[in-house]
Each structure stands twice: as structure tokens, then as C-alpha cells.
Design a protein around this nucleic acid. Structure first.
Lengths: 115, 115
DNA sequence: CAGGATCCTCGAAGATACTG
DNA sequence: CAGTATCTTCGAGGATCCTG
């Protein structure tokens, strides 16, 4: 039989579209070394708006990939961490990110050369 | 230093956003076993419109991940295949797809249970 | 500090019809 | 068969201001 990611309206595709977007990949990748504060993520990740970061974080949290904790010690704040489920996503995400880093130049070359 | 995927307007992030979307992942995944005709892809991949399929295919082709060939033998048509560069993307993409398939149920459970 | 609320815009993407 | 063309809608996402 065909793989499930080929079928529309199936759990596999729904799940894929949850994580197969740039912000999700970057955010999960950013949490690979451990918990991060909201503000830290905002500054570490370039070009992301508060709105998008909050939205992505909450979307991932609502689906059990990320956990949100409140910090009471000084300075108070919020931190986000990968859940075990989120950590299981880490391997594919890291592989994809590394691929993008390694092949960025070649892709750019082809794209610009092809015009 | 930080990983490049954290920086906006850099080649790595541009490249990441090229492949980190659902259609790109599904299309590359669909081409994992070899070339496929346009029409075959259209029917194998559920829920994709001609417009989106053409768009995704041409975008991937413009960036050197996919190659487009014209078939002259009967029945005539067009087929798409992964380039070597596209095949190097295969491992991350397969890993991501497999993850989505394996964890779809758990994700759905968390999402629906959390309301 | 970590968002929520609001407004606004612009492009992604569906529907439909046509074509080499 | 493999697209292109056109129209339209709809929501992602930026900018800005406000708040516990």
C-alpha cells in the first residue's frame, strides 16, 4: 500500500503540516540544547516577530511537542522546552537543518545561475 | 558561533524555507523510488491541485532539486525525477515523513485531549 | 518580560476554464 | 496529457499599541 503521507485528511499529513514549516523547524532546532526563555528565542532567531514566535510556540505546545514553564526566580519569565515527543522530532529536524546549511550555496548557485 | 539557520536573510534559512513546507516534503518523498509522471503524482498525492503541484515541481526544479524530462514515447508526457542534490535531501525528508507517520496518533491524542 | 488585541495588507491557494 | 490564465477569496503574518 501507499505511504500515508500521500493521503489528504489523514493524521500523518496533518501531523506533517504541523512540523513541516520553517518556523517550527527553526524553533525546535533552537530548543535542541535545552530550555530557552521566550526572550532568548526572540533574539537568537533572526527575523521572527513576537506574534509568529508566540503562535509557533503555542501551536507546538498544543500538540505536545513543547512544554511551557513559568519561572518564578529572578528574573521571572517563561521558558520553553522540548517534551520527549518533541525530542523524538529532533533527529529529523536536525538532519533537515544541517542539509540546508550544507547545500545552501549549491542551491543558490543553481537558482541564480538558471536565470 | 550560532548555527546559520537562526539568521534571517541568510542562504541557509532561504534554503530551509524552500524545502520545509508540506508540499515540498510530500513531493520529494513521492519521488524517492524513481521518476514519476505529472499525472501519476497528481493522483498518488491526495488533495493536491494541479496548480500547487506544478508550482512545487517548478520551484524545486528551479533550485536544482528536481529534473524535468519530456517523454516522446507513447503515451507522451512529462516526468520528474530527483537530481543528485534532490536525492541528498531524501534522507532528512524520509526521516521527517516517517516521524509524522509514527507519531501522528500520539499528536492527535494530545491535541484533542487538551481541549 | 511575555504576551494579547487590533488593524491591515498582500500573497498563497482554490475554482474554473482554456490550450499546445 | 500537462500545463497556463484569470479571478477571487481568505487567512497568514507584519505593524502597532496595550497589559498583568
Amino acid at each position: 500500500v501507499e505511504s500515508d503521507v500521500f493521503l489528504a485528511d489523514c493524521p500523518a499529513r496533518t501531523t506533517l503540516s504541523l512540523v513541516a514549516d520553517t518556523w517550527s523547524v527553526v524553533v525546535v532546532f533552537a530548543l535542541r540544547d535545552g530550555p530557552n526563555r521566550y526572550g532568548t528565542l526572540l533574539t537568537r532567531i533572526g527575523g521572527v516577530s513576537k506574534k509568529m514566535l508566540t503562535q509557533t510556540l503555542h501551536k507546538l505546545a498544543a500538540n505536545g511537542l513543547v512544554e511551557r514553564r513559568t519561572i518564578r526566580s529572578a528574573p521571572p519569565g517563561t521558558e520553553y522546552a522540548l517534551t520527549p515527543l518533541g525530542q523524538s522530532l529532533l533527529e529529523p529536524v536536525i538532519a533537515l537543518s544541517r542539509w540546508a546549511e550544507r547545500n545552501a550555496e549549491q542551491v543558490a548557485e543553481v537558482r541564480d545561475g538558471g536565470r
